[in-house]
Simulated assay, not measured.
Amino acid sequence: MAVNIRKFTSRIRTLDDLVSRDALSAEASAFLARSVRAGCNILVSGATQAGKTTLLGALLNSVSQTERMITVEETFELDITAADVVGMQCRQPSLEGTGEITLRRLIKESLRMRPDRIIVGEVREAESLDLLIALNSGVPGACTLHANSAADALRKLCTLPLLAGSNIDGAFVVPTVASCIDIVVHCVRDASGMRRVSEIVAPTGQSSDGDLDATTIFQRSANGLSATGAVPERHDKYDAAGVDLAELITRGSQ
């Protein structure tokens, strides 16, 4: 018999906490905080135990206290300190096979709860389709996804919705992902066990040969996580929030 116990540290609650642990640079932290406040849809990717849930929680703690957030999880893991958070959790079926509440159902229900932001703890299967539909309705959101890189995360998010049924095809999914996802933050755990952000990319909204085009905004090297000098091609949300994106990225690349 095996017992699985998942514990998350309560010492890491904010992006500043991640900066102090060298998991994130101060410039990247400022960029992500501004992205969250601007209402960008953020995908956090990485392997198992790479720190995805911890990073997602830190991002959400940058949200304005006036926002109403709805979280949807298989089991409660996110630690969010915002004033108005409604957490919903899946329920397994009974021994008779009744009473199951799935992620797909919860995501649909969340849209009826006047959300300012929808968060899905992790997408693995067909619930990714419901999340994309929710994000495409104009409600900002975020989620985590297992992947080996930011590019793989976007590719996987274009594939998972196909599990929803044979009537769903790439002609609908790929453009939807391209238009919905604004930022992808990829996390890694290195050989020493340290969890760090390795890259931050921004999809351009375009695709070629079935793959989404994306601009790398921050990249980790031997000198740490630093700005590449490029800016997201889609900046309408930043403009609406009064964020001078060019100045923010330029300052981080110096």
Rank of each mutant, 00 (worst) to 15 (best):
M1K: 06
A2M: 07
A2L: 07
I5L: 12
I5H: 05
R6N: 13
T9M: 09
S10N: 14
R11F: 14
I12T: 15
R13L: 15
T14K: 12
D17W: 11
D17P: 09
L18S: 06
R21K: 13
L24K: 08
S29E: 10
F31G: 04
A38Y: 04
C40V: 04
C40I: 09
V44Q: 08
A47H: 12
A47D: 14
T48P: 03
T48N: 13
K52C: 03
L56T: 10
V63I: 14
T66H: 13
T66C: 01
R68F: 00
I70W: 00
V72Y: 02
E74C: 00
E77V: 04
V85E: 05
M88N: 13
R91M: 10
R91F: 03
S94R: 13
L95E: 15
E100D: 04
L103K: 06
R105M: 12
L106E: 01
I107E: 03
I107P: 00
K108R: 15
K108P: 02
E109S: 13
S110N: 07
M113I: 07
R114Y: 04
I118D: 13
I119K: 08
G121N: 05
L129G: 07
L132P: 01
L132C: 03
A142K: 07
A142N: 11
A150H: 01
A151V: 09
A153I: 10
T159E: 12
L162Y: 07
N167W: 09
I168H: 04
D169C: 03
G170Q: 14
G170M: 14
A171V: 14
A171W: 02
V174C: 05
T176F: 08
V177D: 10
A178C: 06
C180I: 11
I181P: 10
I181D: 06
I183A: 04
V184E: 09
V185I: 15
V188H: 14
D190C: 00
G193P: 11
M194N: 15
V197Q: 08
V197N: 06
V197A: 02
E199G: 07
V201Y: 01
D211L: 14
T215H: 07
T216C: 11
R220S: 09
S221W: 00
L225K: 14
G229P: 11
V231C: 13
P232H: 08
P232Q: 05
E233W: 06
D236M: 08
Y238H: 03
A240V: 12
V243W: 04
T250N: 15
R251G: 02
S253I: 00
Q254A: 13
Q254I: 13
